[in-house]
Amino acid sequence: EQLARLKREFNENRYLTERRRQQLSSELGLNEAQIKIWFQNERA
């Protein structure tokens, strides 16, 4: 579920704002660094 949600977010926007990253962190139970790194890896 977390992965599917991250992929949906990535398809909508390849870059997250700090606020959006905080929201996802709270909703998915991941820390902000994990989300940031995931997005960086997807863009690579």
Results as ranks from 00 to 15, higher is better:
residue 43 R to A: 12
residue 33 A to V: 12
residue 2 Q to P: 03
residue 31 N to V: 05
residue 31 N to G: 12
residue 41 N to H: 11
residue 18 E to P: 14
residue 3 L to T: 07
residue 26 S to G: 07
residue 33 A to F: 13
residue 1 E to K: 07
residue 6 L to W: 00
residue 9 E to D: 02
residue 4 A to H: 06
residue 27 E to L: 09
residue 38 W to C: 02
residue 3 L to F: 06
residue 3 L to N: 05
residue 10 F to A: 03
residue 3 L to P: 00
residue 17 T to D: 12
residue 26 S to E: 14
residue 43 R to S: 09
residue 43 R to W: 14
residue 19 R to P: 07
residue 5 R to Y: 06
residue 39 F to G: 00
residue 28 L to H: 01
residue 39 F to I: 01
residue 4 A to F: 01
residue 22 Q to A: 13
residue 28 L to N: 01
residue 7 K to W: 08
residue 9 E to W: 05
residue 38 W to Q: 01
residue 8 R to F: 09
residue 13 N to E: 03
residue 26 S to H: 13
residue 19 R to L: 13
residue 17 T to Y: 04
residue 44 A to H: 09
residue 30 L to R: 00
residue 11 N to R: 12
residue 23 Q to F: 10
residue 11 N to S: 13
residue 2 Q to H: 09
residue 24 L to W: 02
residue 17 T to G: 06
residue 9 E to Q: 03
residue 39 F to Y: 05
residue 19 R to F: 12
residue 23 Q to L: 13
residue 41 N to M: 13
residue 13 N to A: 02
residue 8 R to C: 10
residue 10 F to L: 03
residue 30 L to G: 01
residue 1 E to W: 15
residue 1 E to I: 10
residue 12 E to N: 11
residue 27 E to R: 03
residue 1 E to Y: 09
residue 34 Q to W: 15
residue 38 W to G: 00
residue 37 I to N: 10
residue 44 A to W: 11
residue 25 S to G: 06
residue 16 L to S: 02
residue 5 R to P: 00
residue 18 E to Q: 14
residue 23 Q to N: 08
residue 39 F to A: 00
residue 22 Q to H: 09
residue 1 E to H: 08
residue 6 L to G: 01
residue 7 K to P: 01
residue 20 R to S: 05
residue 2 Q to Y: 07
residue 16 L to W: 05
residue 38 W to V: 02
residue 12 E to K: 15
residue 3 L to A: 04
residue 39 F to K: 00
residue 2 Q to W: 13
residue 25 S to Y: 06
residue 41 N to A: 10
residue 29 G to W: 03
residue 5 R to A: 10
residue 29 G to L: 04
residue 18 E to I: 13
residue 4 A to Q: 11
residue 25 S to I: 08
residue 30 L to T: 01
residue 12 E to F: 09
residue 31 N to F: 06
residue 24 L to V: 00
residue 31 N to E: 13
residue 10 F to W: 07
residue 44 A to S: 09
residue 39 F to V: 00
residue 33 A to P: 02
residue 14 R to V: 04
residue 9 E to I: 06
residue 39 F to E: 03
residue 8 R to S: 09
residue 41 N to G: 04
residue 23 Q to S: 07
residue 28 L to Y: 02
residue 4 A to E: 12
residue 10 F to M: 02
residue 7 K to T: 07
residue 18 E to T: 14
residue 32 E to Y: 05
residue 44 A to T: 08
residue 13 N to H: 11
residue 6 L to I: 03
residue 32 E to I: 09
residue 12 E to V: 09
residue 7 K to Y: 08
residue 37 I to F: 10
residue 3 L to D: 04
residue 13 N to V: 05
residue 39 F to M: 09
residue 26 S to I: 15
residue 26 S to K: 15
residue 31 N to Q: 11
residue 19 R to Y: 10
residue 43 R to F: 14
residue 14 R to P: 15
residue 1 E to L: 11
residue 8 R to W: 09
residue 12 E to S: 07
residue 34 Q to M: 14
residue 17 T to N: 11
residue 12 E to H: 11
residue 21 R to H: 03
residue 24 L to A: 01
residue 1 E to F: 10
residue 25 S to F: 05
residue 43 R to G: 06
residue 33 A to T: 14
residue 42 E to G: 00
residue 39 F to D: 02
residue 8 R to D: 06
residue 32 E to F: 04
residue 17 T to E: 03
residue 5 R to M: 06
residue 3 L to V: 09
residue 4 A to L: 11
residue 25 S to A: 14
residue 36 K to R: 13
residue 30 L to V: 06
residue 30 L to Q: 00
residue 33 A to R: 08
residue 8 R to G: 04
residue 32 E to P: 11
residue 36 K to P: 01
residue 42 E to W: 14
residue 23 Q to T: 10
residue 7 K to D: 02
residue 27 E to K: 05
residue 41 N to L: 11
residue 22 Q to K: 15
residue 14 R to A: 10
residue 19 R to Q: 14
residue 1 E to C: 13
residue 25 S to K: 04
residue 25 S to M: 10
residue 38 W to N: 00
residue 3 L to R: 04
residue 25 S to C: 09
residue 16 L to A: 02
residue 35 I to W: 01
residue 10 F to Q: 02
residue 13 N to T: 04
residue 35 I to P: 00
residue 35 I to F: 02
residue 40 Q to A: 12
residue 17 T to L: 04
residue 10 F to S: 02
residue 31 N to R: 08
residue 27 E to I: 10
residue 42 E to Y: 09
residue 15 Y to L: 08
residue 32 E to M: 07
residue 4 A to W: 03
residue 1 E to N: 08
residue 11 N to F: 11
residue 19 R to D: 13
residue 30 L to N: 01
residue 37 I to M: 12
residue 5 R to F: 06
residue 23 Q to M: 12
residue 42 E to H: 07
residue 29 G to H: 04
residue 30 L to W: 10
residue 28 L to M: 06
residue 15 Y to G: 04
residue 24 L to I: 06
residue 6 L to A: 02
residue 9 E to N: 03
residue 18 E to H: 14
residue 19 R to K: 14
residue 2 Q to E: 05
residue 27 E to Q: 07
residue 33 A to D: 15
residue 32 E to L: 08
residue 36 K to H: 14
residue 43 R to P: 03
residue 16 L to P: 14
residue 28 L to C: 05
residue 42 E to F: 13
residue 31 N to I: 06
residue 40 Q to G: 04
residue 41 N to K: 12
residue 3 L to S: 04
residue 36 K to D: 15
residue 14 R to S: 11
residue 33 A to E: 15
residue 32 E to W: 09
residue 41 N to D: 07
residue 12 E to T: 10
residue 43 R to V: 11
residue 14 R to D: 04
residue 4 A to N: 08
residue 40 Q to R: 10
residue 3 L to K: 04
residue 29 G to A: 04
residue 17 T to H: 05
residue 29 G to Q: 05
residue 29 G to S: 04
residue 44 A to M: 13
residue 38 W to A: 03
residue 1 E to R: 06
residue 43 R to Q: 10
residue 21 R to N: 07
residue 3 L to G: 01
residue 33 A to Y: 13
residue 4 A to G: 04
residue 3 L to Q: 08
residue 37 I to H: 10
residue 29 G to V: 02
residue 7 K to F: 07
residue 43 R to N: 13
residue 28 L to A: 02
residue 11 N to V: 09
residue 15 Y to N: 09
residue 1 E to D: 12
residue 40 Q to I: 11
residue 41 N to C: 14
residue 27 E to V: 06
residue 2 Q to R: 08
residue 42 E to D: 03
residue 19 R to A: 15
residue 36 K to L: 14
residue 20 R to K: 11
residue 6 L to D: 00
residue 21 R to V: 15
residue 43 R to D: 06
residue 33 A to G: 08
residue 41 N to Y: 09
residue 7 K to R: 13
residue 10 F to N: 02
residue 12 E to W: 10
residue 43 R to T: 06
residue 23 Q to V: 11
residue 30 L to E: 00
residue 2 Q to S: 08
residue 41 N to F: 08
residue 32 E to A: 08
residue 7 K to C: 12
residue 23 Q to I: 13
residue 24 L to D: 03
residue 20 R to P: 01
